[in-house]
Simulated scan of single mutants.
Amino acid sequence: MKRCLVALHLMLILVAGCTSELDGGPAAPKGSVAVSVHGVNYSGDPFKFGVAHPNAGEDTGVGEHIGPFSAGGTVCCFNLPEKWKPGIKLTVYASHWVGKGASNGADTVDKVHTVELPPYADGQAGELWVMRTAEGGLDVVSSDLQPDHPQWPGKIKGWPEPSLEYRRKRWALLHKNASAYLKNYEDLLKELEETPERSLKESWDSDQKYEPDEIKNFFGFNDPCYADYLKTQLTEGKQYWQARVQQSLKERP
């Protein structure tokens, strides 16, 4: 019985020691409060950041990756002083990519920013917002409000709005994608008309591998009903992507 009581006592100690982690991580130092971190990117370049205290050494801090003209999620957590005072400095490790994006061999630009935390709007520490400006600078704000709130204390108001250049670039990619799909269906219909046996055999082999349930009622690639089925599928696909291409042309920024 005594042995059981000792084991129970040890378990209670372990549970007590883990409480702070189960509640969201180790407690903030005295005089500080743990807040969530958000990133907002008002520029046309992909952007990554990590925010840290100046005395954090090699720690690159808390942050995330954000696409052009976008906002990130919620990252936990960063310790801020409960009460603001002049001269609070933060270190922001920032990277952005010029060219095709972070994963396409673009040039990476790394920079370490030292920024001063502006006064807390309501006298208390709020969530920490790290914002890359349209010009490539960095701003930080501590607030529980969002950028589109009427009482948002930051210099930049509202959420990012994509530039015309960026919207046209995105449109060109989507239009190119739709056009490629349309051409693929047109080519497949042409092959079905010019070389029906080979086209039917190739489609049958593909359907057997990837969509067997769709062709279970046909006896083979030379089933006339399968030929009708395939032609209908390809014709409907062509019509769908024709409509997408036409709609894309109407929506060009």
Rank of each mutant, 00 (worst) to 15 (best):
M1S: 14
M1T: 13
K2C: 01
K2F: 12
A7C: 11
H9A: 14
L12D: 02
L12G: 03
V15T: 14
G17D: 02
S20P: 14
S20Y: 09
A27I: 09
A28D: 00
P29H: 07
P29L: 09
K30S: 12
G31A: 04
A34E: 02
H38N: 12
S43M: 04
D45T: 05
P46M: 05
F47H: 04
F47S: 03
A52G: 11
H53F: 02
N55K: 14
N55L: 09
A56D: 15
G57A: 03
G61Y: 06
V62T: 10
V62S: 02
G63P: 06
G63W: 00
G63T: 11
H65M: 12
G67M: 07
F69P: 00
S70Q: 11
G72P: 12
C76I: 12
N79P: 01
N79V: 00
N79K: 09
L80M: 08
E82D: 08
K83F: 11
K85E: 15
I88K: 08
K89Y: 01
L90Q: 00
L90K: 00
S95G: 07
H96S: 04
W97H: 06
V98C: 01
V98N: 07
K100W: 08
S103L: 14
S103E: 15
D107Q: 15
D107H: 11
T108W: 10
T108D: 06
V109C: 05
V112Y: 02
H113F: 15
T114P: 01
D122S: 03
Q124W: 10
A125H: 04
G126H: 08
W129T: 06
V130D: 04
V130Y: 01
M131Y: 02
R132P: 03
G136Q: 10
L138R: 06
V140L: 10
V141P: 00
S142R: 00
S143N: 02
L145R: 13
L145E: 12
P147R: 02
H149T: 09
H149G: 08
H149V: 10
Q151Y: 00
W152L: 06
K155C: 07
K155A: 13
E165L: 00
R167K: 15
R168Q: 13
K169F: 11
R170E: 14
W171G: 07
W171M: 05
L173A: 13
N177C: 01
N177Q: 13
S179G: 10
A180Q: 08
A180Y: 12
L182A: 01
D187Y: 06
L189S: 03
E191Y: 09
P196W: 12
S199L: 00
S203M: 08
D205F: 02
S206E: 10
D207E: 13
Q208Y: 02
K209Y: 03
K209T: 11
P212A: 09
N217D: 10
N217E: 13
F219V: 11
F219E: 13
G220V: 10
F221D: 11
C225F: 12
C225R: 14
A227S: 14
K231L: 05
T232L: 10
L234W: 09
K238M: 15
K238G: 05
A243S: 14
L249E: 15
L249W: 13
K250I: 03
E251A: 11
P253F: 00
